[in-house]
Design a protein around this nucleic acid. Structure first.
Lengths: 257, 257
DNA sequence: CGGTCCGTTGACTCACTTCAACAGTAGTGG
DNA sequence: CCACTACTGTTGAAGTGAGTCAACGGACCG
């Protein structure tokens, strides 16, 4: 039964893996049959804690898992968001001691897979090992893009960039890039882009008034993608969601199904 | 001849790999005999450019290699620094299209290894594949720590954090943590921590006046490690330079040789 | 009905940026 | 040998973007 529940989301993850690294039919079957356990968490809850030794990795079925760090004075900074079909801590398969903890930002469902299963799959199939490695590299590249956005962007630009990224990542699943669920509060957004919740609120209003995007409580509606893209200095190449890696092109049409 | 020149720095890299993932004698011999070509670059030069398809990976023999991104208005943000013994773009072994370019910040020497050599080594030895994977994960965790520092730290704290990190990374080689070469200008530091060069200058003065650290043109001298650590909110656990992973402990003595 | 969380707005403050000037050093060419 | 340029570090003064503090309304919930 857990297998059935995991099947759909394993297929989503597999699809994402294959965008970056080809896999044989046999390898695909191995991934599709990874056994796991469904875990539900409600609202803002710790999923794995700092310093803990994890025994499993967590595939996001629904909701959002956020990785974060904290400063000495208790300020929180998210370093990654994981949505449906993302493996939140694949790196834990090889480095199980948690160096940045995970939290949910809303009611969230996970499909947890024993890390030994991932490890043995990687040990037995070099191309699976490569696919997992690529997944971690892609995540690292997303982190690098966040660094550029936060280090050098204005408040408006940082928020626009985050919304663009989420639009693309949700869009590749739903086929619709201009509307997606926003499972984050304005405080969460602030913790992701290094701003206070108050200023996030002001900038979201500014974005709305500019006509580029409406970011409401439950969902985001993009009115002018090209404007939003320019506001965020966003180029989706780094997400590797396209077969044709399109760093060069400025306006990328997502492959709509 | 190139082999001889690469030998020492390959041993350094190997040592770092083994801190995170054990390797058999045979695997170690494979790494130690990776053939490569020495390449020298002077001052601030592009090493690989955005969008390029790389054919090799670059091990840093001397100097500094910096990975960076750029905003639309031309501002630069470094996302990683690589020093002697670091593999600057191991991820290129599996994802050769450059999503963030590399630059030297000073006269720098590289040992360049064909990416196919890395790929076949990883394909033939699962434990080597795991070691390479771990290296990329560690780099990603360093990036996450930069995000926390830049997103939530004050100007003083960001610079202190960077100096702490460099002290530990150089210290594990030299055996001396309190003095290391500073192969960066104040403008480089600004581009790493998201500040202007002018403000970096002021904060370096503030750090000096606080008695924690003296950051001069060519080298850094740490006067009060514990103070600097607190100023930067720094905990070296994420660097994985110790056998005993010591996230919990607050003052970590580096393993001095 | 009261409590809590989230979003919203205004007034004030301050950390960092911007602009500008200058000194020291190194490299370059006449 | 000395101009000339370029880069780096340094400092001051003024401007501003984002933080801080505070108050309020609405939605949800027990």
């Amino acid at each position: 039964m857990t297998l059935v529940e995991g099947g759909e989301v394993l297929a989503l993850w597999l699809q994402r893996l294959m965008l970056r690294s080809p896999l044989s039919q046999q390898d695909q079957d191995i991934v599709r049959s990874f056994p796991g356990v469904i875990r539900k968490v409600d609202g803002t809850r710790d999923i794995v804690r700092l310093g803990e030794r994890t025994s499993h990795v967590s595939l996001v079925v629904d909701g959002i898992v956020a990785r974060f760090g904290q400063t000495a004075d208790g300020n929180r900074q998210f370093t990654a968001f994981f949505i449906r079909g993302d493996m939140a801590d694949l790196h834990a398969a090889v480095m199980p001691v948690v160096s940045s903890p995970l939290q949910s930002t809303c009611p969230t469902v996970l499909y947890q897979i024993d890390r030994e299963i991932i490890r043995t799959a990687a040990a037995q199939s070099p191309s699976l090992a490569k696919a997992f490695w690529c997944d971690c590299v892609t995540e690292s590249q997303i982190g690098a893009e966040w660094l550029v956005s936060i280090g050098r962007g204005s408040a408006l630009s940082r928020i626009a960039h985050l919304l663009c990224e989420l639009a693309c990542r949700y869009g590749v699943m739903s086929g619709e890039r201009d509307r997606f669920p926003l499972l984050l509060t304005q405080a969460h957004i602030g913790d992701a882009v290094g701003l206070t919740a108050v200023h996030v609120n002001r900038m979201i209003r500014a974005l709305r008034e500019s006509g580029s995007v409406i970011a409401e409580a439950g969902h985001v509606t993009i009115r002018d993608w090209d404007l939003l893209r320019r506001q965020g200095g966003f180029d989706p190449g780094y997400l590797h969601l396209n077969d044709l890696d399109s760093r060069s092109g400025l306006h990328i049409e997502l492959e709509l199904q």
